[in-house]
Amino acid sequence: MTEPRDLDLYQNLVNGDKKALEALYDRYEKLVYSFAYRMTKDPELAEEVVQEVFIKLWNPHSPYSSEKGKFSSWLLTMTRNTALDFLRKQANKPTVEYEERDSPQEAADSPGELLEVKEQSQLVRRAVQRLKKDQKQIIELFYFQGLTHEKIAVRTGLPLGTVKGRIRLALKHLRTHINEEGGKVNGY
């Protein structure tokens, strides 16, 4: 089965093809939503992030080009930045906080979704699960909650000067685990 490539769909989208936007939406809806939900921990806010991401995709202020790497990476970077933006705005309206994630809620496959996404997801989640608790925590605070340097220090009880080193260490372990889990994850 030959699916149109992301880049081709994106080109059509830039030329005003609504169907191309819809095709990209179908392909990435669940990934973008799941990531936004992981960051915001709020289904409504996650949906707002998804909407904002696709609005930005349709009205690009800084359009995608293949020099920027994979389309999916670019889209996810936009998702993360948008979610962080929303989290900052929502800082006054906190929702429930989870110390650790609850049991997985495997969602049913949706049509048009990439198999690659599912495999990557299983691999990365296994790798993250193998991290020590404090390493998971610092990645959570640093990457998913996008806290300031100072807040990470307060939340972890680490001196300010130690935070970056601990992030580095946690990421190093993560990378080792990913490689061990059979990831051909680095460098497409």
């Binding site: 939900y37 495997e106 969602a107 990557q120 990365v124 989640r125 990421l171 497409y188």
Partner: peptide, 20 residues
């Protein structure tokens, strides 16, 4: 470069009905 890895640490959740 973490964008190629960490977003996939999200549980795949089904989006709310009608989100599309």
């Amino acid at each position: 470069a973490l964008i190629d890895e960490l977003p996939y640490d999200s549980e795949p959740v089904t989006p709310p009905e009608g989100m599309k």
